Amino acid sequence: MNQTTTPVPRERDPADPSVVATRFWSRCDDGRLQCDLCPRHCRLKDGQRGLCFVRMARGGEVVLTTYGRSSGFCIDPIEKKPLNHFLPGSSVLSFGTAGCNLACKFCQNWDMSKSREMDILADRAEPEQIADAAAAQGAQSVAFTYNDPVIFHEYAVDVAAACRARGIRTVAVTAGYICPEPRAEFFAALDAANVDLKAFSERFYHRLTGAHLAPVLDTLRYVRHETDCWLELTTLLIPGENDNDAEIEAMAQWVLEHLGADVPMHFTAFHPAFRMVSHPRTPPQTLSRAREIALAQGLRYVYTGNVYDPEGSATYCHACGERLIERDRYELGAWRLDAAGACRRCGEPCAGVFEARPGRWAGRRLPLRFS
């Protein structure tokens, strides 16, 4: 289970503090260095960067080149991550860097995650500065998002340690494509995560993300059963690619069997982007159908996203059917949970991390600058 996170001294380049030494790599017989952070295992010559573009071989070691640098900071509603069962209504200080270790052709944040330009990293902040800013703004958590935080592992872990020391929680929005050893360190530092389960077929992962399904499923099982990190899932449904009934049913069955009925699932709408700009948008009825299929398989909390759907965004008691939390996009309406997070009508607990009263941040967005 999760352990108390303590700051790790980082060896940083005096000439460029954004360059730090890393631990998860090994030497190959041919002299190259193998990055062992994620299942890609990029083999790098000196001066060469991995697919993520932010980790590179330099001077006989693999370094991270974006420590302390961000494409921007913003206070968001926690529901935007999306996390519906983790401190509902609260605010979260969100930030990302650049690059990604997946190659999704449908990326919705491609301007940051696919960037090969370091000049988008216009802001700088040390971990303690981020924790202090979250506390000053009344944010209950800090989110690593916009691009996958796995690739800025060291920075994320250090921010989490600084936040935990201030009583601030941390969450990650990630594809879960990470090797076992760094995975244990990464998720031990977190309080919640939303993992993108992008599809339930190896064909989809290989063809549209350049990755593989099995490591993601391994991460999901690990987070659910070996950590205290609160877990929610998101699947972006793309017409004709991963939205057929049989695949959605198989996915829901796997989640039920391996993760349990209480793990929330979010089915969200695809908007044409990046290398799939000519692909059609996801019809709202596709999301509603996916939600019905997952509920029919026995999952208790299933949501729709990126569309206006009050029914699909509300939380219901799985025992008596009472609408526990009403949502109008990111704004909360009626709240029918007691102080212990149970249904006021029948007393059945609702799975999640709740406080006695919901937050009132609603749909506000507050950009922050550090430098």
Rank of each mutant, 00 (worst) to 15 (best):
P17F: 04
M265H: 01
P272E: 15
P283Y: 09
E226F: 08
I325Q: 06
I248M: 04
C179Q: 11
F370S: 07
A188G: 13
A125F: 06
A15R: 10
M112L: 14
L236M: 14
P215G: 10
P272Y: 10
E61W: 03
N194I: 06
G359K: 04
S288A: 10
R12N: 10
S70H: 08
A172S: 14
L87Q: 10
V159L: 01
L102D: 01
H41R: 15
R207H: 12
R224G: 03
D243A: 09
H318D: 08
G59L: 08
L87A: 08
L87Y: 15
L208G: 01
E128P: 02
Q297I: 01
V216D: 05
P239K: 07
V171E: 13
R23A: 11
W335V: 09
R203C: 07
I78M: 15
H271G: 06
R116F: 11
E226Y: 09
N306Y: 03
L337P: 00
A199S: 13
A294P: 01
S371Y: 01
S141L: 05
D76F: 05
T145M: 09
F354S: 05
P310K: 10
Y316G: 09
H318V: 04
R300N: 05
F204S: 02
A214G: 03
D123K: 10
C343W: 06
P310Y: 11
E331I: 07
A252D: 00
C350V: 15
I248S: 01
A214L: 06
E331L: 08
N109G: 06
H85G: 04
R69H: 12
L102C: 03
F152C: 02
